[in-house]
Simulated scan of single mutants.
Amino acid sequence: MTNRQKLIAAILLFLGVFSLGVAGFKYFGGPEATLLDSIYMTAITISTIGYGEAIDLRHNPTARVFTIFFIILSLGSIAFAVSSITAFIVEGELKDIIRRRKMDKEISRLKDHYIVCGSDETAQTVIQELLLTRRKFVVIEPSREKLEKLQSLGHFPYIEGEPSEDEILLKAGIKQARGILLSLPSDELNLYVTLTARSLNPRLRIVSKGIDLKSHAKMKKAGADSVISPTFIGGMRMVSEMIRPSVTTFLDMMLRDKEKVLRVEEVTVKADSKLVGQTLQESRLKERSDILLVAIKKAASGEYQFNPPGDYVITAGDVLIFIGSPEAVQNLEKITA
């Protein structure tokens, strides 16, 4: 029996003992004893305070025998209740409940956030990157033990539950989320959660891990926007280390430097942004010291303009691709919004 179950049992036992006392004193007190008198007698007997008796039991031996056994029963139930409450508080379950409620409130306020499903090495890398780049996210994992290990990566909200369940995904705020990242133990689970997530939020961006390359097409048909193969990425990294080692070293410095976090980021220009209609030279984006504009994905054609010239006219829906810090991303989002 867990401490929480013991606490519930102690409360129920106390209520049962109290009800027994009220019924007993009402019975032995006769018609003259009111319900309030019986409650009063029960309260002073259980608490062993010993105020004056509201029901006279001096000439009723049977009632006195009942009172003796009731006192012994009361002391036992109080001792059990005190030990259960102490264990509940000392062993941290009350603290966990308070922390869980606080976290649930934090999750309910999330908007335009990301949902991470899983706790394997891939998921851990995802979590570390989201923490470093200061993104809002919530983790879903059914194993409490694995969730506790993930907490060593940093503070973030999480939900203990199956990511394949609609209720859990809704609790994670999937309808308000920007995207979901799936790194579950099997392709079948990733495929099932992809179907579920897409049905709950048709606008959601879904990125899933695909262990078997043959499963990628099925996942995309199910609604995944992108499917990532760890083996393919690993192979590409190995050959990059061989033929372009300086580039991989530079990228590693960007990814692993925790003091100065730099990433290749993207920001979409909104329709009501003040940048719309301006040239890059007029916007002075290329002159900013906190970002390095690398390319623009054109809204009209979807083509990429690498190292765009100063006379390029910015339009609504253009995606600016640049190298910058999390702070630079936030500043640029304010301008493009």
Rank of each mutant, 00 (worst) to 15 (best):
E165F: 14
I72Y: 05
L12F: 15
S215K: 10
I140Y: 03
K136Q: 12
A23L: 12
E303H: 07
A81R: 00
A33M: 04
A23W: 10
K146Y: 08
G118K: 02
R100H: 10
F322D: 04
I323S: 01
Y51A: 09
G235D: 03
G24R: 03
P157H: 06
P245D: 00
F14E: 04
D252W: 07
H155G: 08
L36Y: 14
I335M: 10
M103S: 14
G92H: 12
K297A: 09
K26I: 03
M1W: 13
E188M: 15
R134E: 15
V261T: 07
L332A: 13
K111D: 15
I71M: 04
E32Y: 09
L130V: 02
L320W: 02
S183R: 11
E259P: 08
M253G: 15
R203I: 07
V116T: 02
S19C: 13
S38K: 00
I314G: 07
V65N: 08
I168F: 12
L280A: 06
I127F: 03
I44P: 02
V65I: 09
P230V: 00
E303K: 05
L293I: 05
S301N: 09
V294K: 14
E303A: 09
A224I: 05
I115G: 03
R205H: 10
G173C: 00
G179A: 12
F156I: 11
I71S: 04
E160C: 13
Y192T: 14
A43D: 07
L150D: 01
P202L: 07
V138T: 00
F70I: 10
L153D: 04
I49Q: 05
V82S: 00
G302I: 06
L191C: 06
D166Y: 14
G21M: 08
G21T: 11
L262G: 00
E148N: 15
R237V: 11
A23V: 07
S273R: 07
V239R: 07
L35H: 09
T249Q: 13
E53K: 06
S84T: 05
L285A: 00
L13R: 05
Y312T: 15
S186Q: 14
S325R: 09
L182R: 00
K6P: 06
S119P: 02
E93K: 11
D212E: 11
T45E: 13
A81L: 02
E167A: 11
Q5S: 10
V261G: 04
R134L: 15
F28Q: 02
G16R: 04
